[in-house]
């Protein structure tokens, strides 16, 4: 049937004022939590765990000396 969009029987109109994208909020907050977790994992485990890491000369001599 070409391009026609399938129209389910129970199609209803939801206007601007009655619509709260609660599902979107739920999804995007999950995404937020995932991003924060992965960021910390990548920075503190993958990156800092991959030493030796380049350090400034001043800081380095401070640590060694």
């Amino acid at each position: 049937m070409g391009q026609a969009i399938e129209k389910p029987e129970e199609k209803r109109e939801i206007g601007h004022d009655e619509y709260n994208p609660v599902g979107t909020l739920a999804l995007i907050l999950l995404y937020f939590v995932l991003l924060v977790f992965l960021w910390f994992f990548m920075y503190f485990v993958e990156f800092l765990g991959n030493d030796p890491t380049v350090v400034g000369t001043v800081v380095a001599s401070g640590v060694v000396g």
């Binding site: 129970e10 199609k11 209803r12 939801i14 994208p21 609660v22 599902g23 999804l27 995007i28 995404y31």
Partner: peptide, 25 residues
């Protein structure tokens, strides 16, 4: 964009009878 586009999709899903926090998907 992630929010606006997903919210627009959700609007479509709810108009098509979708319900719940995730069921609308």
């Amino acid at each position: 964009t992630a929010f606006t586009v997903v919210a627009s999709m959700e609007h479509g899903a709810r108009q098509r009878g979708g319900t719940g926090y995730f069921g609308w998907l």
